[in-house]
Design a protein around this nucleic acid. Structure first.
Lengths: 162, 162
DNA sequence: GCCCATTTGTTCGTATGTATA
DNA sequence: TTATACATACGAACAAATGGG
């Protein structure tokens, strides 16, 4: 269930729980699903689920009662003694998340897609070679596409993962 | 090292670290002992030591830097008012936005890349067929590069789609 | 009152990833 | 390359509290 956004799974779960608390999916004063249920829902281990719950408990959003459940706390956060990295931290976290998403998207495009394009170029070169050997003209299957007279050279070792 | 005071070991360790930070045993700006050292000092498992450190990190007292250490953080003690409903609503909105962005990006990228992969596979099959029909060897040495399968060594079940 | 299933809380151990030196 | 250190994640076990037979 947790995506591959570069963010830890337990933070993703914590954010999702936070959202569901704010929008009323988990009403104030009532318990959220049990740890076992959440494990099945997010398809995650007990570690990440409990880490997410513990974070929200430290923030004062949730409160656990052994033998019963984890309840949504009515009082928002009357924390004065310890600073309030709460909202600021969440905002910073979200900004960083967006940044990471963009970076990951760029990385995916620049690696996967470029590699695929390189392979297409190689294949086009091989096709032209075959048609040349057969003495046939290269059929420009697609209008407008000049069908690259020169396949991308891409000599030497391309991106290689040992 | 942790006594039998009815309090959890990780809280005792957290309190002890807090005390040592306040009294200057661990000065501001300098790192506390490593996790391994603290494990030996308190004669506790890595779990309780890391739980204590994590609590202090959530409180803003400590900050960890992977590869270096966990440093005592200077705390200006903002004591600001917390969590106006306006900010909460904005946070919820941002969380939802990020969630939707993740899904959209994942879907788009996967579909595009998968389509490219399929096309490459078709082309490769056709080329090999053509080379075979002509009785020519498939030029592996020239440029052909099979970059489809990446060896992954995922151990347990990490993220499955439910 | 007692047993039992459920649930949270704590603790143990371990593996892996990543950053730093 | 190697070693250290933090961060995340997996799994397991036990205790304590709760509630229903």
């Amino acid at each position: 269930m947790t995506a591959i956004t570069g963010q830890p799974a337990y933070q993703q779960i914590a954010d999702d729980l936070r959202r569901k608390i704010v929008d009323g999916t988990y009403p104030v004063g009532e318990p959220i699903p049990s740890t076992t249920t959440l494990m099945a829902h997010y398809n995650g281990s007990i570690t990440v689920v409990r880490a997410a719950i513990r974070d929200l408990q430290n923030e004062g959003v949730l409160i656990g009662q052994p033998g019963k459940g984890v309840y949504v706390q009515e009082k928002p956060k009357p924390r004065a003694d310890v600073a309030s990295p709460d909202v600021v931290a969440q905002l910073a976290n979200l900004n960083e998340t967006v940044q990471q998403l963009r970076e990951q998207l760029a990385a995916t495009v620049t690696t996967e897609v470029q590699e695929l394009r390189r392979q297409v170029g190689v294949l086009q070169g091989q096709i032209m070679d075959l048609y040349g050997r057969m003495g046939l003209p290269y059929p420009h299957e697609d209008a407008g596409r000049s069908a690259g007279a020169k396949p991308r050279k891409s000599r030497g070792s391309a991106t290689r993962s040992a």
